[in-house]
Amino acid sequence: MIAARFGLGGRRALVTGAGRGIGRGVAEALASAGASVTLCARSAADLDEVAAGIAAAGGTAETLVLDVTDAAGFAAALERRPAFDIFVNNAGTNRPKPLDEVTGEDFDAVIGLNLRAAVFTAQAVARGMVRAGKGGAIINMSSQMGHVGAANRTLYCASKWALEGFTKALAVELGPRNIRVNTICPTFIETPMTRPFFEDPAFRRQVLGKIKLGRLGQIEDVAAAAVFLASDAAAMMTGSALMLDGGWTAD
């Protein structure tokens, strides 16, 4: 009975930033658990590749080519689709640099995607969930940097701390509708995009010195957490942050 609670059969899931990296891994994991997954990103080629892989593995996936910073376009696209049961609000970016080098364009890019787009995509998905009246699960992709600070990451930390507050408030608001809202808070995850940074021995030592488990996070770590939060196994969990930081924030 416990194992069955992790199944997602019959549920519709939407994942933003699904063309690569963490978003791709999460989409593949949700599909493997039985969900019918809608893959959203700007690159049609990336999405087609992910969808083909999911289909080859016996899953179900469709693509939605959109820029999530276009709030009106995103909302309009969802109006034409049945409500989703699961939303993984994953699209995000980072521009690490000292504060005295941060530009207005940097601010608009990081806050615009990590916070503004996250808020209005959640709004559009939640509207559909409320109309359908079946409840649901919204998973906002946050970070350990939504709980601690770090040099050269003022904008990123600001966006993720704000996302944590937004998540708690939305969980309170949507709880009576049986819509659960949580965050996943990874540490440094090894992806094709981040792997080159860890080729610098000093940076790798610095990061691993903060991760008590002594290893970098893997995409599978995040994907498994997303399946848990999307499933009935997390039926009593809302307004919470699921820390996948290897102990970074423990001290």
Rank of each mutant, 00 (worst) to 15 (best):
P82A: 13
M1P: 15
V181K: 00
T69A: 10
N89E: 08
G175L: 02
E62Q: 09
A72F: 08
R116S: 01
V65S: 06
L174M: 04
W248S: 03
R204P: 10
A151G: 15
I189W: 03
E199H: 11
E164C: 04
A56K: 15
T103I: 03
A171P: 06
D200Y: 09
L170F: 05
M193W: 07
T187M: 12
L216D: 00
G9R: 13
G92N: 05
K168H: 11
A61N: 02
I2Q: 14
N89Q: 08
S32C: 12
P186G: 02
V102P: 05
T63S: 08
R205M: 12
M141A: 06
A51L: 07
A72D: 13
D232A: 10
D106L: 01
E164N: 09
L39D: 03
R153H: 14
A118F: 05
D48Y: 08
T187F: 05
M193E: 11
R180P: 01
A226S: 07
L113R: 02
A57K: 12
T16R: 02
N178T: 09
R5Y: 15
V222T: 06
A13S: 12
R80C: 07
P186W: 02
K168C: 05
I211C: 06
Y156A: 00
Q123A: 10
E62N: 07
L66C: 10
A57P: 09
I54S: 03
G17V: 05
G23K: 01
T103Y: 05
R153M: 15
F188P: 13
T103F: 02
L216Y: 04
F120W: 06
V110I: 04
P98D: 12
A250S: 14
K212G: 13
D221F: 01
A61T: 04
A77W: 10
G239Y: 06
G209I: 08
G58H: 05
K210R: 13
N140G: 02
R204A: 13
A18K: 00
I22T: 04
V37E: 00
F188W: 15
G135F: 05
A122E: 05
A250M: 13
G73N: 08
E79Y: 11
A234P: 03
A4H: 14
A171V: 00
F120V: 00
G104I: 04
A44L: 10
S231I: 07
A45R: 14
K97V: 10
E220N: 11
A162T: 02
L8N: 04
Q123I: 07
A71P: 10
V37P: 03
A44K: 11
G112I: 01
D100I: 13
Q206P: 10
G217A: 07
I2C: 12
V88F: 10
E199C: 08
A150Q: 14
A224C: 11
A126W: 01
G19E: 02
Q206K: 11
A162Y: 00
D67R: 09
A91E: 07
G246R: 01
E220P: 06
Y156D: 01
G21E: 05
A13E: 06
P176E: 02
A230Q: 03
S231E: 02
A171Q: 04
P96N: 07
T191S: 09
K134F: 13
A250I: 14
D48C: 10
A225I: 07
L30S: 01
G10S: 12
S159I: 02
G19H: 00
V130S: 10
I184V: 14
L229V: 07
V172I: 12
